[in-house]
Amino acid sequence: MANSPSGDSVTDRIVRILDTFTTERTVQSATDIGRRAGLPSATAHRQVEALVEAGLLERDEDRRVRLGMRLWELALRGSHALRLRQAAMPYMERVQATVREHTQLAVLEQNEALFLERLSSPDSGANITRVAGRLPLHASSSGLVLLAFGSTELQERVLTAPLARISPETITDAATLRRTLAHIRRVGYVVAPGSIESVSTGVAVPVRDGSGAVVAALSVVLPRTAPTEGAIAALSDAAAGIRSTLTADRR
């Protein structure tokens, strides 16, 4: 795509504009989008209008901007994430019915755990995770599983970078994290008390496809004092079921 005088391409500017939207910030003005994207006001307004005309962004009655339905439609066409979610949903429902706490499906996306789905009961405990939300790999049970079974390059990239402290119990020491990852690979699951919130324990297992590659993490968020054995068993059974479905889909 053609570059602007500042050297960034049209594609770069579009991505920066879309990246200003978060799970908490779903509606913005064009001026705020430009400021957050680091674009000149005139450029931001012109690019936002073009995206609105294309249906990738939409305006509300107050002329504020939100992500458009066409963007959602395009993202789902042939999406691997959609197929994975569809395969996982029946088994996630069984886990949630058994455990009666938050049940989540996450995938690796740009060095973070991206959550594709979450099922909850009205009386489920504390949980900051949202669908389409992200958490650091070292600080969540799902992220720890994805990191443990990720590539050596990914692990070294995370281990050599500063490890942000999300809660007092988040692992921030590289040597401790390395030992934790080895333990996860050995036992096939993780129990992470207090890594995100002190009142909760995350429990997660890997989800494999028909080839045996880890493609996702399946997790539950339990109250801190709750036993974990039943959750581990339910998650492991569900992961095996998802793998069977993914294997059948490849035939």
Results as ranks from 00 to 15, higher is better:
Glu61Gln: 08
Met1Ala: 15
Ala233Gln: 15
Arg13Asp: 11
Leu105Ala: 05
Ser200Tyr: 00
Ala30Pro: 05
Val27Glu: 13
Ala216Met: 13
Ala88Thr: 06
Asp32Cys: 05
Ala106Asp: 13
Asp32Arg: 14
Pro206Cys: 11
Arg25Trp: 07
Val205Tyr: 09
Thr228Tyr: 02
Arg85Glu: 13
Arg134Thr: 07
Arg251Trp: 08
Gln96Ile: 01
Pro40Ala: 12
Glu24His: 04
Val52Thr: 03
Leu163Glu: 07
Ser219Ile: 03
Thr176Tyr: 00
Leu177Trp: 08
Asp8Phe: 07
Pro206Asp: 10
Pro122Leu: 06
Ser29Tyr: 03
Gln96Arg: 09
Ser142Leu: 06
Ile242Leu: 09
Pro223Trp: 12
Asp19Tyr: 06
Ile196Ser: 13
Ser211His: 11
Ser244Thr: 14
Ile166Leu: 14
Asn127Val: 09
Gly241Cys: 03
Ile184Glu: 09
Leu51Arg: 10
His80Gln: 14
Pro40Gln: 11
Glu93Phe: 00
Ile184Asn: 04
Arg85Tyr: 06
Gly68Trp: 02
Met92Val: 11
Val48Ser: 12
Glu117Asp: 11
Arg208Thr: 12
Asp60Lys: 03
Leu222Ala: 04
Leu177Val: 06
Val65Ser: 06
Val158Asn: 06
Leu84Asn: 09
Ala97Glu: 05
Leu119His: 14
Asp32Gln: 15
Val215Phe: 02
Val215Arg: 08
Arg85Lys: 14
Ala231Gly: 10
Arg250Lys: 13
Gly212Met: 13
Arg77Lys: 15
Thr247Met: 06
Thr22Trp: 08
Leu154Glu: 14
Arg185Pro: 10
Ala132Gly: 01
Leu116Val: 04
Glu109Asp: 15
Gly38Arg: 07
Gly212Cys: 12
Thr176Glu: 12
Thr245Trp: 02
Ile242Lys: 08
Leu159Ser: 01
Gln28Pro: 11
Ser211Thr: 09
Ala175Val: 06
Asp19Val: 03
Ser236Gly: 15
Leu82Cys: 05
Leu137Gln: 09
Asp237Trp: 05
Ser195Lys: 00
Ser140Val: 04
Gln47Met: 09
Arg63Gly: 01
Leu18Tyr: 11
Ala233Pro: 02
Ala234Glu: 00
Arg66Ile: 04
Ala97Cys: 02
Val95Pro: 00
Ser29Ile: 04
Glu117Trp: 01
Ala161Leu: 13
Ser120Gly: 03
Asp249Val: 01
Glu93Ala: 10
Ala148Val: 03
Leu18Val: 12
Ala248Val: 11
Pro227Leu: 10
Glu93Trp: 02
Arg134Gly: 00
Ala239Thr: 09
Phe149Cys: 04
Ile128Asp: 10
Ala88Asn: 04
Ala217Pro: 10
